[in-house]
Design a protein around this nucleic acid. Structure first.
Lengths: 145, 145
DNA sequence: AGATAAAAAGGTATTAATATCATTTTAAAT
DNA sequence: ATTTAAAATGATATTAATACCTTTTTATCT
């Protein structure tokens, strides 16, 4: 198993891509995004539609329309994308799948998972959507394949 | 998304349960295990059958048969269960799902995920199957619901 | 106003994960 | 030998995730 669902993987990669391609105020179409991050276009369309409805990204219909990010979206943490797509179970739920697991009724791995969940959340919450625009521009980082 | 698949969650809980219930040399049947960890019995049967085939747990057919753990199984790390069930993608694959992601062609979150993967692996690899027998016996830890 | 280009919406298809059921094999007890 | 209790196997069912397709809405341009 991967950490994120495919939906979430595509979502994060797409948002990074949009951030980097629209830093200049432009918009970008679904075709170019799907191609830029190696994702199935119709599936990605659904994902972006959902992220747009939830306010994580912005979109504009019609000719010269497309997806883009406003200032406040650029400074959102990645955890917002993950939460919008996969929910907060990665940050909150018991690692062994126990609904009743808690501080007073812990599973054997309760404390270990608490730390891991915190690590993941801290990382995702302290990294913003726009954090890698420079590196993406210079080609240091890849979002394809 | 959860960290592990349902299959893996049931598997780990079941193995903990078997370890604790058969520490005295007994065997334990699928019914009692399924009940003890709140899992669907036929599904769990499949999982344990697979773990048995892979040598993670031991089983014995016929009357007074059941599942149990030998000494060496008790000292295996949890990472062995996870690898047997979910494979090693949790420890190895790119967090953003990129096949080509590597040190020389990193995704934007490459280093961040490397650390998280290492945390998870270290935890699972340094915790043994038999580590919680005492706490399970005294009821400090729960495997149910 | 009409044509066009884009995302949004809604519905369908495929695949993988999860769950269940029926039959077979194995070993013990009588 | 027969019965019985257990896991192993094989087949099927259900559900959720992933992927795709068609139509509709919105905005721009001529």
């Amino acid at each position: 198993m991967a950490i994120f669902s495919k939906t979430c993987e595509y979502g994060i990669r797409a948002v990074f891509f949009i951030a980097h391609k629209t830093a200049n105020g432009n918009r970008i179409g679904i075709k170019e995004i799907a191609n830029g991050i190696s994702s199935p276009e119709p599936f990605l369309a659904k994902i972006l539609q959902d992220l747009s409805r939830k306010g994580i990204i912005q979109s504009f219909k019609g000719p010269h329309g497309g997806f883009y990010l406003d200032e406040s979206s650029l400074s959102r943490p990645l955890s917002d994308i993950v939460e919008a797509v996969d929910g907060d179970s990665l940050f909150k739920d018991c690692g062994l799948g126990l609904k009743a697991c808690s501080e007073i009724n812990p599973c054997p791995l309760h404390n270990q998972f608490k730390e891991i969940r915190n690590n993941i959340y801290k990382m995702l919450n302290s990294t913003t959507i726009g954090a890698f625009n420079n590196e993406l521009l210079t080609g240091i980082f890849s979002l394809k394949k």
